[in-house]
Design a protein around this nucleic acid. Structure first.
Lengths: 200, 200, 200, 200
DNA sequence: TATGAATGAGAGTTCATTCAT
DNA sequence: GATGAATGAACTCTCATTCAT
C-alpha cells in the first residue's frame, strides 16, 4: 500500500505524514489527534505538515480520501472481472473483513467517518460515501438488468448494504468473544443476508 | 426537584439543559458544542450545568441515554403486543423514520453516535448499542422459535439491521431530492429488504 | 478545648464549623479547602456557613485566631507563675512540641500561617504574630531586668525564637526518621540553644 | 536557546518569564498570581509560558529552585574560602539581609515558601529546604570537628537557624519602623545569637 | 524545503457567594 | 435559623496556525 520510490531507508516525507495521520485518526479520532502527535509519529516538524497540507482538515481529508480510493478501486477491480453480481457482492464483503484483519486501522477509520462532527468535513465525506454508494448501486442496476437481482431502489439499497457492513465491522473491532466471531463469520453471514434480500 | 409552575414557558431547569444539549449535540456534534452554547440556549448559567452534571461528558451521556431509552422503550412496547416478528420489525423501522420527520435532531443524534471520536465515550456508547442490539436479537430469536424467521446469527443480524437503518437515516437527513425520497420510502424498502433476508 | 454547652449528643453548629475548618485548613491549606468541604465535614449546609461567617476569609481568621489565642493563653499562664524566665521559655517550647503530638493539625495550621498569600489576610496574621512576639518580648525584658537574661533586642529575639520553633515544628510534622527524632528531642535542644543564646 | 542580541531592552523570553514569575509570586503568592499576569508582565503570550513550562506548578518550581540555587551557591562559596565556621555563619546571615535590601522580592519568595499551601508543592519545597539545611549542617559538623562549635544536633540546629533567619526576614519586609530596624541590625544580632548558642 | 518558537482565542471547569423558600 | 439551587467571573491549559530564520 505504501510506496517507497525514493530511498530504501527513508520513506518520503509526505508518505510518512499520511501514514501517521491514518494511524492516529483511526485510533483516536479527529479531535483527539493533534498536529503535534502526527508530526512526532511521522518524525517530521510541524512546519513540514503545513508545507504539505494547508490545514488539519485537509490532512484528514487526504487520509480519508486515500482510504476510500483504495477500497473503491478494489471494488471496481472485482466488478470489472465479469463475475455475476451476487458473487461480486460476496467478494467485496470478504475483502472488507479481510482488511479488518490486516489493516484494522484503515477499516476503523472508514467506519468512524460516517458522521464527522464538523459540518464542513461532513459535506465532503458524505460526497465520498455517495461515490461509494453509487458504485455499488451501479453494480445492483447491472444485476437487475441481467435478472440476477430483483428490482430494488439502487441507492437506498447501496446505503443499506454499506451500513450493514459498517455496523458489523465496527462491532468486530472490539476485543471480546463476539467480535472474534464476527471477524470469522461476518463476511459470509452478511453476504447471505444480502443475497437473500436481493435475489429475484 | 424544584417546581416552578407559575409560568407556561418556564420549564424545569434540568429539562431545559438536557433539551438544549440534545439539540446542539445533534446539530453540531460533541466537540463543536460548547458548554457556553448549551447554557445560552437553555437560558441557564454555566454553573447550573455543572450543578446537574459533573462534566460535559456526563451531560452528553445523559442526553444520549435518554434518546436511546426512548427508542428502546418504544421498540419494547411494540414487541410486547404479541404481533408476529416480521410485523414488529416493519413497525420499528417505520417508527424510526417517523421520528426522523418529527424529531430530526434526536434521530441524527443517535446516528452520530455510532462511532464517536473519543474512545472513552465510544466504550460507553457501544454498551448502549449492544443493549439495543440485544433487544432486537431477542426478537429475532423469538421469531426463529415460532418459525417466522429462518435461522440466523441473532446478534450479528441485529447489528446489520441497525446499521442499515442508521446509514439510510443519516443520508435521509440531508436536504436533497434523494433524502426526501428516502424519508418517504425508507421504512418500507428497508422492511422489505429485512423481511426477504430473514424469511424462512 | 471544644465546649459542648447545649446538647450531649449534638455539638453546637458553630463549634462543628470551626472544628472542621481547623482540620481542613491545616491539612490542605486555605485555597485547597472549599466551603463545600467544610460544610460537608461539619455536616452543615453551605447556607449555615454564611449565617455564621461573612466570608471564607472570616472563617479562616476565626479558626486561626482561636488557635493563636489558645497558644497565647497557655504561654501567659506559664508566665504568671513567677518562674524564672529561662524556665518559662523551656516550658513554652515543651508545650509547643507537646501540642505537635496531641493536636498536630493545630500545630501545622499555625506554622502554615507565617506567610499567607492573600495580602489582606497577611496583614491580619502578622498582627497575630506580632502579638505573640510581644508577649515573648515582654518575658525577655522581664528576664533582662532581673539579670537572668543578657541585654538583647527583645522583639527581634522574640521573632527569632518563634522562627526557630516554627521551622523545627514544620520539619517535625513529616513522616521520616528525622521528624521522629525532632519530635522527641526538639523541645530540649531548642531550649538549650535559646538558653545559651540568652544567658548573661 | 534563541539569541536576540539586537536590542538592549529585549531579554531572552525564558529569562523574562522567570523574572516576571519571581516578582509576582513573591509579591502576591502562588494562588493570587495568574498565568495571565505573568504573561503580561513578561510581555509574552500565554502560549509561550506553556512552551517553556508544562504547568503553573512547574513554572513556580523553576522560579523557586533558581532562588534557592543562587542562595545556596553563595553560601557554598563562602564555605569554600576556609574561614572559621562562626565567621562563615556571620557572613551568610549578612548576605541574607543584604539580599533583602537589594532583591527584596527574592528574599520574600524564599520566606513564603516555608509552608506553601499545596501539599504537593510542599513536598518538593521541603526537599529544597532540606538540601539547604544539610549544607548548613555540614558547616556545623566541620566546626564541631575543629572545636570551633560545641556538639549539637546538626540538622536540628540548621533548621533552627534557617527558621530564625526566615522569621526575622519576613518581619523585616514590612514597612514600619521595626522593619527598618531589623533590616539594619538583623544580621548582626542574629549572628550574635547564633554564635552564643553554638560556641563551645 | 525545513524548522519550532511564538501566538491567542477559546475550551472545560471551579467555587465563593447570594437569596428565594 | 436553615437550605441548596443558581450564578458567573476567573482560572489553567490546549492547540491549530504563523513566520522569521
Amino acid at each position: 500500500m505504501i510506496e517507497r520510490t525514493f530511498d530504501m531507508a527513508d520513506t518520503l516525507v509526505l508518505e510518512r505524514i499520511v501514514e501517521a495521520g491514518r494511524k492516529l485518526f483511526a485510533r483516536q479520532g479527529f479531535h483527539a489527534t493533534g498536529m503535534r502527535d502526527i508530526a512526532k509519529l511521522a518524525q517530521v516538524s510541524i512546519g513540514s505538515l503545513y508545507h504539505y497540507f494547508r490545514s488539519k482538515d485537509e490532512l484528514f481529508l487526504a487520509v480519508v480520501r486515500r482510504a476510500f480510493a483504495e477500497r473503491l478501486s478494489q471494488a471496481r477491480e472485482l466488478m470489472g472481472q465479469g463475475l455475476p453480481a451476487p458473487e461480486v457482492l460476496r467478494q467485496v464483503l470478504t475483502a472488507y473483513f479481510a482488511q479488518l484483519a490486516q489493516e484494522p486501522e484503515t477499516a476503523q477509520l472508514l467506519s468512524r467517518v460516517w458522521a464527522p462532527e464538523d459540518p464542513a468535513l461532513w459535506r465532503k465525506f458524505s460526497g465520498l460515501w455517495e461515490e461509494h454508494a453509487r458504485a455499488i448501486a451501479a453494480l445492483l442496476e447491472e444485476g437487475m438488468q441481467t435478472g440476477a437481482i430483483r428490482p430494488v431502489h439502487p441507492l437506498l439499497t447501496a446505503y443499506a448494504l454499506l451500513g450493514m457492513a459498517a455496523a458489523v465491522t465496527l462491532r468486530a473491532a472490539h476485543k471480546d468473544e463476539l467480535a472474534e466471531e464476527l471477524r470469522r463469520r461476518g463476511a459470509e453471514e452478511l453476504a447471505d443476508l444480502a443475497w437473500r434480500a436481493l435475489r429475484p
